[in-house]
Design a protein around this nucleic acid. Structure first.
Lengths: 206, 206
DNA sequence: GGATATTTTTGCGGGGCGCGCATATTTGCG
DNA sequence: CGCAAATATGCGCGCCCCGCAAAAATATCC
């Protein structure tokens, strides 16, 4: 049962997370105070810290949610599908652009991208983002263990797969953000990365 | 020329890093103030922040140094050696225990390990540790690009290899710390992890 | 060796953060 | 409706991080 209570909580959390990202992308990390984020979400400053234990955590929260969804997506893939195919698809599913972004007018979109890029470059945030990935990695490893019938406690295998998959996505995203336009579509990069991984990353002929 | 100035700076940095780790392992992350670390290193509190921009960064500094050494070690490997063999060896080299730890009497050592374990569990530190790995990963990717004749700017390959290798080491360390004694030697775990990676992490037969 | 330039350390001050605690408000339930 | 549980808020405190300017330490040059 999803009562009014839980729904409101989720909404407040989302509002805070979104406000944190939005304000930071627009004004820069240290020009945004917790007070501002709380105000934008219509909540008292003290309440902010009931939801997030730091400003950085709030900004990384959407990233965490998205990463966690990959593990959930893997569980939804048909059981007959080969592991790496399933992983690739699960990862790809997370990269369909959301409506809020899709609906932006072009100039605003360009500014938005620039703001996000600056935000991601902020050292104070990188650790928190990586931590989010690490948390999701644990979920992913559990899903992999389930799917392959391996044991989380004794086998490194599921964790290795989860870590490698997370790394593939991260590298693809980085490559995408760094490359000049027109960028290679992120879907293609992710697919490539997974293909190379599953092939054992052989050294290219020289 | 390594003047007195640079040497002293390196010494101060090392002293601060070591004091940060030591005090934290002994007393717990939030029972140690920056003031304490500075005092233990024989320096003013203000000076602490001339070397590290946060308490967490100081604690993670040794981890960063060690991770960076892997990239350097890879560059030292003979050019004829196959890539994955070289990577495995470069990683293994970082896990010969230092003399400060080796010389500890047994009971103190047990307490030390417990302290370190607690320290690593601290959420406030995990992000910073991961960030250190990410920084080292960039160096490693550069070394891989050099060795394989690939291009950092256009190919995902070197970054993928670096990320996968870092992940392998991380998973092996985690497995080592989590497993009950007698633990499998860390060297064996690392070797295993790299072997599986280079084989493309095939799904085990069910 | 002593005067000068550069680099590093230090003290001070301030803005902000994260949280424990007590209180007020809202929601769920019988 | 009225009570119990959960949530939001206000207040206060200790700490953290950094800018700035003065003092101390080190390098350089004659």
């Amino acid at each position: 049962m999803t009562g009014l209570r839980e729904r409101k909580k989720a909404e407040t959390r989302a509002a805070l997370g979104w406000a944190a990202i939005h304000l930071t992308a627009e004004h820069g990390y240290d020009n945004v105070r917790v007070e501002d984020i709380a105000a934008a979400a219509g909540v008292s400053p003290r309440t902010f810290n009931n939801y997030f234990s730091s400003k950085a955590e709030a900004i990384a929260s959407r990233h965490l949610d998205r990463s966690l969804r990959t593990a959930a997506a893997l569980r939804e893939r048909p059981v007959g599908e080969p592991l790496w195919a399933a992983l690739t698809q699960a990862a790809l599913e997370q990269f369909t652009r959301g409506p809020e972004v899709e609906a932006m007018p072009s100039p605003a979109h360009a500014q938005w991208v620039a703001g996000v890029r600056t935000m991601l470059a902020e050292p104070a945030l990188q650790g928190e983002r990586l931590r989010a990935v690490a948390i999701a990695e644990a979920e992913l490893a559990a899903a992999v263990a389930e799917r392959t019938g391996t044991d989380l406690a004794t086998d490194m295998y599921p964790r290795l797969v989860a870590a490698a998959a997370s790394a593939a996505v991260a590298v693809a995203m980085q490559h995408y953000l760094d490359s000049p336009d027109p960028p290679t579509p992120i879907e293609r990069l992710i697919t490539d990365a997974f293909t190379q991984l599953a092939a054992g990353l052989p050294a290219p002929p020289r």
